[in-house]
């Protein structure tokens, strides 16, 4: 177990190092940092002095080391657009993205699992076929289009729900803002989280359905039925439990995808999160924000992958025996 975890940790660190190198290359060589910081009338000598004081004349490995150690202390430089430290900008926007992603993942699980179980148990029923067709449409529709359609129906035509922003938010602790505690905040969460979670929901539904179809044919399910256990027990205690291992893996990996796809949803709904800021950075070539976002998301993905690997190991006893 420990050896396995260590191997994975080393791999994760190598990935992070490669990503850091990429982020550094982006930061240092795409767009001249000095040009972005000075005005037109700055003299060449002043530019050179600034260059020296920023350490841009040091050897590249020294600069890379400085970049990593700064990043480890959450210092990602100053945004070209906002003239503020990148880390402050991110800190302000992280709660919005995390709350949206959390609600979307919850939606995907709470709706996707029962639909998948039903479709797996009643393979031929009309409702299952409807679920499958709907899920195919859900996979084919691009995220931004789903968002636009939802806004069109629920905000423009029915005027039930807001189409942009987070509603009223409440500040908790020093810096965390939450939309969970006000009615308008909760209402504002509904459309974006459905938009963001729909793809994951269809994915989970299809996965559970496929796994259920397989599990239901196994001998231990037949045996449980022969023992006269009620359907509810057989389906949920015996069958569903054994389908959950791949679901946990996929959900974990999809959590990363949710945070990445939040960029699109946040743009459609003008949700004030990291994704929206990253997109504005791409449009305005704000390199420090781009490289910081790259590092942050990479760190998130790598940690999620790591945790999923460990979880996998803890949940499935068969894996433990094989590796030991």
């Amino acid at each position: 177990m420990l050896g396995f975890a260590m191997r994975r940790l080393v791999q994760a660190m190598i990935v992070m190092l490669v990503v850091a190198l990429l982020a550094f290359t982006l930061f240092r060589f795409v767009g001249d940092p000095v040009n972005q910081m000075v005005g037109v009338e700055t003299s060449l000598e002043q530019r050179e002095a600034l260059r020296e004081s920023l350490g841009l004349n040091d050897p590249v490995p020294v600069q890379f080391w400085r970049f990593i150690s700064n990043a480890a202390q959450f210092d990602f430089g100053t945004s070209y657009q906002f003239r503020q430290p990148v880390s402050d900008l991110f800190a302000k926007r992280i709660p919005a993205t995390l709350e949206l992603s959390f609600v979307s993942a919850l939606f995907a699980l709470i709706v996707g699992i029962p639909m998948g179980v039903y479709a797996g148990l009643n393979r031929e029923s009309a409702v299952s076929k409807l679920f499958l067709s709907v899920s195919l449409v859900g996979i084919s529709l691009p995220t931004f289009l789903i968002g636009i359609l939802l806004i069109f129906v629920f905000s423009v035509n029915l005027q039930w729900l807001p189409s942009f922003g987070r509603g009223e938010t409440v500040q908790i602790g020093g810096w965390w803002t939450t939309g969970f505690l006000t009615v308008s905040g909760l209402k504002a969460l509904i459309l974006p989280s459905i938009t963001l979670g729909l793809y994951q929901m269809t994915l989970i539904m299809r996965l559970i359905r496929a796994e259920m179809l397989e599990v239901i044919r196994t001998d231990y399910i037949k045996f449980a039925r022969a023992r006269g256990l009620p359907d509810r027990l057989v389906h949920f205690r015996h069958a569903l439990k054994n389908t959950l291992i791949p679901v946990i893996t996929i959900t974990g990996l999809q959590l990363g995808a949710i945070i990445a796809f939040a960029t699109i949803t946040e743009t459609v709904f003008q949700w004030p999160g990291m994704g929206l800021m990253f997109l504005q950075a791409v449009q305005n070539v704000d390199i420090p924000i781009m490289s910081a976002y790259l590092l942050l998301t990479a760190f998130l993905f790598v940690s999620i992958n790591f945790i999923v690997d460990i979880l996998y190991f803890l949940i499935d006893p068969r894996l433990r025996v094989e590796r030991a």
């Binding site: 990935v15 795409v30 990363g256 990445a260 960029t263 699109i264 997109l279 791409v282 998301t297 790598v302």
Partner: peptide
């Protein structure tokens, strides 16, 4: 492997942004 950890849309966005730079 490293690239596979990122969704394609993010990579496309990053490359697009860098190319614009």
């Amino acid at each position: 492997d490293v690239q596979l950890t990122f969704p394609a849309i993010l990579i496309a966005l990053l490359i697009d942004g860098a190319a614009r730079g």
